[in-house]
Amino acid sequence: MVYTVTHRILRNDMDAEEATQDTFLKAIRGLHTFQGGSRFSTWLYSVAYRTAISRSRLRRTEDRSLDEVEGRPGEPGSEAQGTTSDRRRALEHALSRLTPEDAAVVTFHYLHEMSVDEIVTATGLSASNVKVKLHRSRKKMLEILQEHLKEEVWTLRTE
């Protein structure tokens, strides 16, 4: 699950692996700072989030130039038929269109089923900021997914 968080933020296997390693090292070294005020998984996600975001900021400029040359990763083909792998690619594509912070927030919310309060703890963002990010990301993702998945579930639109 830590790897998922770092991968969703960094969108690169090698960086995600290194960030995951760093996360566990930092977690071990900073274990004494875990006060038990939240679930351990939330605390661990916060370490992963900060590690990955920090790494993504360092290489943001590099990423932009790469994206321009290679195109965004995970973009689904026009023949998407709604199989699991197609849906995976569509989801990865939709996530790649979000900022790293937004991708992490929606992953925390929809995959890890974390509440807004838990996301606040994990990310250090304010509750209102988390809600705004969730709303904005949901709207954007649904629009992207609707373009690529021809299933009725994606006819739903956010208000």
Partner: peptide
């Protein structure tokens, strides 16, 4: 619900 179902179906990396 639709987004959560998709995230859960695809699962973690």
């Amino acid at each position: 619900r639709a987004l959560e179902d998709l995230f859960q179906e695809v699962g973690p990396e």
